[in-house]
């Protein structure tokens, strides 16, 4: 019973937050989004003021009254300084590279301002676990990344992060809660498999399979816009035979298949982890590899783009693909 009311409250709070601080790709911090309240140190400072006031009253000492009021006035002035340390700042999500489950997702943020106000000591905090301090020392723009542990594969959406500052005196904390639609692609946790992926002879007919490469000339094809100029067969062009490009191929003797079926008896995550481990092992090597998952097949290839494609399939296997780049 209690749990459900707690859940209800949480739901209401979330709805209120969505209304109060709606998600945006770029957020400019204005009055409506900023909160400010004394910190614990600020309340202790109040205590100091009361103590000084008592001393001044009991000793009937107007100078100490004056100093008490000076400190009180400093507190009030600090409200402005703290508030304006954030106010006017704009913040947007920056580049976030994919990461592996269990490691840290480095969410990029870009903080920028019109003008070059000196903004000192601002912190980005995620649920009290991760934080990073930054400053805009008279610059218009600064990029930072906040590392948050990635809990599971797939699209990791950490939700809201807090941007706060206690500058200059630590008496007050101004903060805002940002929903920047943050997301990071998390690949499965890589596990090195004890077996090597099953190879298959290239081509059932025993011929050497050729894949796009750069060693052996294979064919001359009609030029398509966008192809590299270096591949154009200028000699043919000079003979007025039209614009063609040269295509080469590398001979390969086998494909490697990262195959879902290679790990019978393991559960989904363990299989994906091992496939991911294989993929990382093969990257940078000469081998061509393909991916076979239930319902998905990626033809063998190699290179960075291919790796990313494979890893993305592994990351999102069985999950909703919503929230792509």
């Amino acid at each position: 019973m209690e749990k459900s009311s707690h859940g209800r409250f949480n739901q209401l709070y979330q709805r209120w937050m969505d209304w109060r601080l709606p998600a945006r790709d770029r957020i400019v911090l204005r009055n409506r989004r900023l909160f400010i309240f004394p910190t614990r140190a600020g309340f202790v400072f109040f205590g100091l003021l009361i103590l000084l006031w008592l001393v001044a009253t009991n000793f009937e000492n107007n100078l100490i009254f004056g100093l008490t009021f000076l400190l009180a006035a400093i507190f009030v002035v600090a409200i402005f300084h703290t508030f304006f340390n954030l106010s006017g700042l704009s913040i947007e999500a920056g580049y976030t590279p994919p990461c592996f489950c269990g490691s840290l997702a480095e969410f990029g943020f870009v903080l920028s301002q019109r003008g070059r106000r000196y903004r000192d000591n601002i912190r980005l905090v995620y649920q009290g676990e991760s934080n990073i301090s930054l400053a805009l020392p008279g610059v218009e723009r600064v990029e930072v990344s906040l590392a948050i542990p990635a809990p599971a594969r797939g699209w990791f959406k950490p939700g809201r992060v807090t941007l706060e500052t206690r500058y200059p005196l630590g008496l007050l904390r101004a903060w805002t809660i940002l929903d920047l639609n943050l997301q990071a692609l998390v690949y499965p946790r890589p596990i090195k498999a004890s077996v090597w992926p099953q190879g298959s002879r290239a081509g059932a007919d025993g011929n050497m399979e050729l894949v796009d490469g750069r060693e052996d000339f294979r064919s001359l094809e009609k030029y398509r816009p966008g192809e590299a100029l270096g591949r154009i067969a200028w000699k043919h062009y000079a003979r007025e035979q039209g614009l063609h490009t040269k295509h080469y191929a590398d001979p390969v003797d086998e494909y490697l298949w990262l195959d879902w079926e290679a790990f019978p008896g393991l559960d989904t995550e363990m299989r994906l982890s091992r496939l991911c481990g294989w993929c990382l092992e093969l990257t940078g090597g000469q081998a061509l590899y393909g991916l076979r998952l239930p319902g998905i097949e990626i033809a063998p290839a190699r290179g960075e783009a291919h790796k990313n494609r494979v890893l993305k399939e592994l990351a999102l296997f069985g999950l909703s693909k919503e929230g792509g780049d």
Partner: peptide, 28 residues
Amino acid sequence: LITLQAIPLMVVLFVVMPRIGALWAVPK
């Protein structure tokens, strides 16, 4: 900067805030 900005408010508080007499005896 903060102190200079605080001084006008300090003067206002000094002028307006009421003084009540000593609450208890203190060593001089």
